[in-house]
Design a binder for these strands. Sequence first.
DNA 1: CTTGTAAATGTTATATTATTACATAGTGTT
DNA 2: AACACTATGTAATAATATAACATTTACAAG
Lengths: 132, 132
Amino acid sequence: MEKQHNLSKNQKIIFDLIDKSPEPLKAYSILFNVQKKGINAPLQVYRALDKLVEIGKIHKIESRNAFIACQNSSCQISKATAFSICESCEKVSEISNTKLSKYLSNFADQAGMKYNKYNLEFFGLCKKCKSK
Amino acid sequence: MEKQHNLSKNQKIIFDLIDKSPEPLKAYSILFNVQKKGINAPLQVYRALDKLVEIGKIHKIESRNAFIACQNSSCQISKATAFSICESCEKVSEISNTKLSKYLSNFADQAGMKYNKYNLEFFGLCKKCKSK
DNA sequence: CTTGTAAATGTTATATTATTACATAGTGTT
DNA sequence: AACACTATGTAATAATATAACATTTACAAG
């Protein structure tokens, strides 16, 4: 059984916003959107984001400085993430591919070193953009 | 034969600095270091960095907003990159592993979509930090 | 129930990272 | 020489993120 994380008020407001969004959201766009709910300062947003990332409810798309809800119910901790990013329309999808994640989790480098965490971002054109 | 890129003055100054550095450098630390050489403004640094990334002489470590010289002589274009990052001392190494790069370059997702570009960052503890 | 502790909140200010806009200069063709 | 392209210089500003400090809430242990 996975640990239940009871989100606090701000965390819930911000998670709900990200979860409903079809695209990754940036911190200041989140801030703008939640100001009517009483969240006034960047730090309030960043604190909630940090926590949500920590418990795996959202992931940060590093190359875009944006945040997306976890699409993968089994991924409760953000330690092994893979995304596909369309370089034209900026659509981002989380990749859940058991073979890929096994391959990467078991990867050992030249020195035999293994890693407990990774983040992979693939770039290309999504179907729609490719057919344009 | 690979295309030869003749670096301009600013590009060369900034590449040399990054290439000599044992660790990834951040843009404003680069700026600070090259001010004695007549580069005064952030934009001058960012323009050179953009170009150097484009031609594959350096890579950006996205999770750290820092830049590292390409360690891999065959990687003239930054389109397939993998790094190992120590979460304790922040040491970063580029991974050149043919199997890994083949695996990722050939990876096709659920929809059969393939990608022309990827960036992978592994996190863990380096040998030194692990033995502490 | 009250006390201790960790987590979360609120607020202001500031640090860090990156780009826009505009003017000028160099480089290499044809 | 004319052209196109790349690079440079400078000032201002936008976008992203954190530091410092005061207060409040949640909740388990005594």
